[in-house]
Amino acid sequence: MDKDIIESAGKRLPYKVPDGYLEDFTGNMMQHYGRIKREKMRRRYFSIARVAALFLLFLIPGIIFLTDGNSVKNNTDFVGQDSVVISAGENVTEVDNSVSSSITNLSDEELLILTSVLDSDIYKDQL
């Protein structure tokens, strides 16, 4: 009798499941899975973008620094090229000619001013 009392209840349960809950459960959960998957992908893209942004943040100043260095070097090269052109002596006569022609074109008054300027030049003896 003692044991019977539990056995008589058996495995029956006094609960009911709302209609359609278990039938729809798989579909609902898979929709949820889709959302989780999309969210995961979104997070992955964000973290990749964040890493890329950090990379660029460190890379850009480096590129700018390197570009500046090159332009200074290029400018130096340019100046150097000029000086090379002048020191080569090929175009010196051309420069001299242009200077002498501009002097010949000066008026008497202008020539007087130029002479007085040249006389007052403190570095004239060093030339």
Binding site: L13, Y15, V17, Y21, L22, F25, T26, M29, M30, Y33
Partner: peptide
Amino acid sequence: GLTLLIDKYKERIYWHIRRLVVSH
């Protein structure tokens, strides 16, 4: 695979949970 897994176990797991927590 996940769809098949849910289909196979949902009922068993539901009743296990329901017996423990009582309310649907």
